[in-house]
Amino acid sequence: MPAPPRAAPKFLNLAQIRFPIGAIASIGHRISGVLLLISLPFLVLALERSLRSEADYAALGTWLNSPWRALLLVVMVWAATHHLLAGVRHMLMDIGIGSRLAQARMSAWSTIVAALLIALLAAMRWLS
């Protein structure tokens, strides 16, 4: 086989690749994980504030009154739910439950839809 030229091109345009549902659930797992990591310091601040005084504890409850903050929280609800469900799915597959292709496709779909539904419920509660 002839050696390829030094700058052999590669085809790797992700927009032109048709990703199966498992891959989409997985990239959601990753994105939600990063969002959760970013929220972690704020979660610590919220914990500290909730323990400081009764007024601080009550202030956390009114935090949602701004629609932008509520929207942010809806995104975080999606992130937490998707990450959790996708994680449980992976751990079950690790021990051989639902790791066949048909079942894995089904659970990937369920994870994506369930997380979006729960985020929608949160949006309906906090954004209306």
Partner: peptide, 16 residues
């Protein structure tokens, strides 16, 4: 809880 979250986040971020 927070220690476990941080340990978990470490592996995830390391993979990314």
């Amino acid at each position: 809880f927070f220690a476990a979250l941080c340990g978990h986040a470490w592996v995830g971020v390391r993979d990314i």
